[in-house]
Design a protein around this nucleic acid. Structure first.
Lengths: 128, 128
DNA sequence: TTGGTATTGAAATGCCATTATCAATAGAAA
DNA sequence: TTTCTATTGATAATGGCATTTCAATACCAA
C-alpha cells in the first residue's frame, strides 16, 4: 500500500505519461533518471508494478521484446513497430478490421489487434 | 553442418510439419517425444535452430510467451491466440487491412499483421 | 560388418530480466 | 523539529529459458 508521494515516483509517472508510446523498463528508467539522477532500477520495477495494479498503465508486449508499459488511455489505438530500433509507437486505430472468413469450429472471437511494421523517422534518417 | 539423418530429427520435423500451427519448444518436445520416447530437450533446441537457419521453419512470438516455431508456408496467414491456454492457431488472413488514416511524419510502412483473440474450442468445452 | 565421427541425452553452465533483502534515507503527521 | 516508518538503492538471490559440455550412442561410407 503506497502511502507516500516521492520524487522518484513522480519522475516515473511523468516519464510514462508524457511518452505517448509504450516504454520498456529500460526506457522508463532512462527517461525518469534524466529527471531524477540516481534512480534505481528496482524502484522502476516497483513503481511499474503498482501503476499496473492500479490500472494507470497497461502493458504491451511483442515478439521477443521485453514488455512495455503505456499510460492508460480510453481511446483505442494500434501500434507501429520499427524494424530497426524495435521501439513501439502509437497510431490511430483503423476503423474496423475484417473478421476472418473462416474460423475453426468452436472458436469464439473476443477481439483483434493490428500491428503495423516499418521504419520510424529517426531510423530512416540515420540510415541514409 | 548437419550431415546425418536421425530418428529424433525426423520426429521433430514431423511434429512441426503436421502441427499446422506454431509450436513452443515445449510443445515440439512433447509432440516429438510421443513419436520418439526419451528425446532430449537439448536436441529439440538444436534441431529448431538448424531448421530455423535453413528457413524451413519461422518463429513467431507474442506477449510474454516463449517463441513458437511453425513450418514455413508461402501462404500468408494470421494468428488466433486463445486467452485461456495461450496456444496460437493459424487462420486465414483477411483480404486486406486498412492502412491507418494518419501516420507519423517520416514513418515508412512495410507491412501489417492482424492478431485475433478469443477462446479455442477445447478451452470453451473445458470451462463449461 | 566395421570404424570414424556426427549426433544425442543429461546435467552443468550461462544469461539476464525480475524479485527479494536490508540498511540508509526521506516523506509527512504530530 | 522530531519521530515513525514507508520507500529507496545497491546488490544478492531467483527463476526461466537457452546453450555448452562430454561421454555414450548410432549413423553411414567403405
Amino acid at each position: 500500500m503506497r502511502s507516500r508521494q516521492t520524487r522518484q515516483l513522480e519522475a516515473i509517472e511523468h516519464a510514462l505519461r508524457s511518452a505517448g508510446r509504450p516504454l520498456a523498463i529500460a526506457e522508463v528508467h532512462a527517461a525518469a533518471a534524466a529527471e531524477f539522477p540516481g534512480l534505481g532500477i528496482a524502484t522502476v520495477y516497483r513503481a511499474v508494478k503498482t501503476l499496473s495494479d492500479d490500472g494507470k498503465i497497461v502493458s504491451v508486449a511483442y515478439a521477443g521484446q521485453p514488455p512495455r508499459y503505456e499510460w492508460a488511455v480510453a481511446q483505442h489505438h494500434s501500434h507501429f513497430i520499427c524494424h530497426t530500433c524495435k521501439r513501439v509507437f502509437d497510431i490511430e486505430a483503423p476503423e474496423s478490421v475484417p473478421l476472418p472468413k473462416r474460423k475453426p469450429r468452436g472458436f469464439v472471437f473476443s477481439g483483434d489487434e493490428v500491428i503495423y511494421y516499418g521504419t520510424c523517422a529517426e531510423c530512416r534518417a540515420a540510415q541514409k
